[in-house]
């Protein structure tokens, strides 16, 4: 077992861990009670899954054929930047569209802040 085989194995192991993270995030998106916790699961852990998988593909192509793929690196950076932004925007749109929180929610601090702002603007 030489070095190239070991590096190849590690690259494929990264992809397998990424796939397991994807299934965990999918379980999170099916089990959580409301949209805010669901976006918590669907944004963070699926981003980690994609980052691990693309990193595994990058390592695989570097170690087997010696091809440094700039496109894969750009894809990693792009997903890392844009996926949390997309999660933030859709959660904000959901709050503005008055999607209900879960029944187990204890307090909603943003509603207090928004009411305060509307009251001070009204006066």
């Amino acid at each position: 077992m030489n070095v190239s085989t070991i590096a190849e194995f590690i690259a494929v192991l990264f992809m397998l861990i990424g796939a397991i993270m994807a299934v965990i995030s999918a379980i999170g998106i099916i089990r959580f009670p409301d949209i805010y916790t669901r976006s918590h699961a669907g944004t963070k852990s699926s981003t980690l899954a994609v980052l691990l998988t693309l990193l595994g593909a990058f390592l695989y192509f570097v170690t087997t054929i010696g091809f440094v793929s700039v496109r894969l690196l750009l894809g990693i950076i792009f997903v890392f930047i844009t996926s949390p932004v997309a999660g933030h925007l859709i959660t904000r749109a959901a709050y503005r569209a008055k999607v209900k929180l879960a029944d187990t929610t204890i307090e909603d601090e943003l509603a207090d802040v928004l009411n305060e702002k509307e009251r001070s603007e009204g006066k």
Partner: peptide, 14 residues
């Protein structure tokens, strides 16, 4: 849908 798109990306890498 966003999650499906992101998972499709990694499936294409695999």
């Amino acid at each position: 849908l966003d999650m499906i798109g992101v998972h499709l990306v990694s499936a294409i890498a695999i």
